[in-house]
Design a protein around this nucleic acid. Structure first.
Lengths: 209, 209
DNA sequence: AACTCCATGTAATGCGTTACATGATTCT
DNA sequence: AGAATCATGTAACGCATTACATGGAGTT
């Protein structure tokens, strides 16, 4: 659903309206979003239709002399609300950070009231992943005491190998999650250190930590 | 393509043949592969058909009295070769490590000649990601000198913000890649430290580093 | 004359997900 | 009697990818 919200977000940034061809250029080479999400024109028009069906954008045909007619898509109030909702919701899994969270972050930084929005989004993302880290660490701790008998070969090789593999999987997930947490912490530090533009940056508490 | 090769690998482990229902249990709760890849029965039968079309497995109907007839799928020589090829090929991107590389690792550990196979796979994966790390670090270094003029506001805010965002994206990718590299290094250390079962473990050089 | 820009899509193909259909047998 | 196990799939739906179709206007 990241691609869809990226289209919605782009429309919102362009004063609430825009047409497909114009939007498509934001995903071209050199543009900041190109490093995060890839979107062919075909899919872009598909998403615009879906957004229309959801009632988040409305379309109107605009005639330009000497040019092909174009569809102007406008963000509806419902679309604004949806975008706002999506921008405050962290992603649940580490693997979703790379694409979906980065797209959220991009639009949160550009939105009106960016300082508090970003602080809230990043803070809740940190809390969500910290919970995940705790869960993974717990699973790992519960797994380690399994093989304390190196001499006893009564547990068969396959089961022991399976346990070792399960440990590797958990360790990888933990390392990946901790890497993201470290990155988020640097993000938070930089933001609280420099920008005093909006004092609300530190005032927004993460809800339900 | 990881799911497909996982099915192929499971058949190879079960003495080269097995039937769908039996295979499906390997993806059930508590099994080591369940922590890595999820595969509903429907998709499993779909993959078995695909493997058949590719010539990697062949199917035969087996009648069991008092039970529904079942299809016994056998790995062909071409399937064996394909599995072997796949097991020596590292994944190209960091995001593929979590699913595809872990599946490769699982089967490499179980294959005959596991020690050298694992050493080779892990070594080449390390080399591949080390190259990626170098590339990302280079891009990041090329990006940093962009904003050395804090007083000059002639570059507009949006462009500066885009550059800052691009830096964040690269930093995240770099952190994630480094986390995986650290995990791979621990894997290599553990293997060279304990198991002297097959001396080939250290002898296999990564090709084309 | 050939190419690129503008602008919007459709078509084909395949993958993934969920749910359901079938029908005998063995466990509780 | 009811549930779970064995065993194999199909059907429906939506998403993603790639390629192509269309056609005028300006550029080289």
């Amino acid at each position: 659903m990241a691609a869809e919200h990226a289209v919605l977000g782009l429309l919102a940034l362009e004063a609430g309206a825009g047409h497909g061809y114009d939007l498509a250029r934001h995903f071209g080479p050199g543009r900041p979003l190109a490093g995060v999400i890839r979107l062919e024109p075909g899919m872009l028009y598909h998403h615009l239709k879906k957004l229309g069906r959801a009632g988040w954008v409305s379309a109107a045909t605009e005639a330009v002399p000497g040019r092909p007619a174009r569809q102007v898509h406008s963000v509806t109030p419902a679309g604004q609300a949806e975008l706002r909702r999506w921008l405050t919701e962290p992603v649940a899994h580490t693997r979703e950070v790379r694409l979906e969270f980065l797209v959220k972050l991009y639009f949160a930084r550009r939105a009106t009231g960016a300082a508090s929005l970003v602080a809230r989004l990043v803070g809740e993302q940190r809390a969500t992943l910290a919970r995940l880290e705790g869960s993974l660490a717990g699973q790992l701790a519960a797994l380690l005491p399994v093989g304390p008998t190196p001499a006893a070969s009564d547990t068969d090789d396959e089961a022991q190998d399976d346990a070792a593999f399960a440990r590797l999987v958990l360790e990888l997930r933990l390392d990946q999650t901790r890497a993201v947490l470290g990155w988020l912490d640097r993000l938070i530090d930089e933001r609280t250190a420099d920008g005093g533009a909006a004092g609300a940056a530190v005032d927004v508490p993460p809800q339900e930590a």
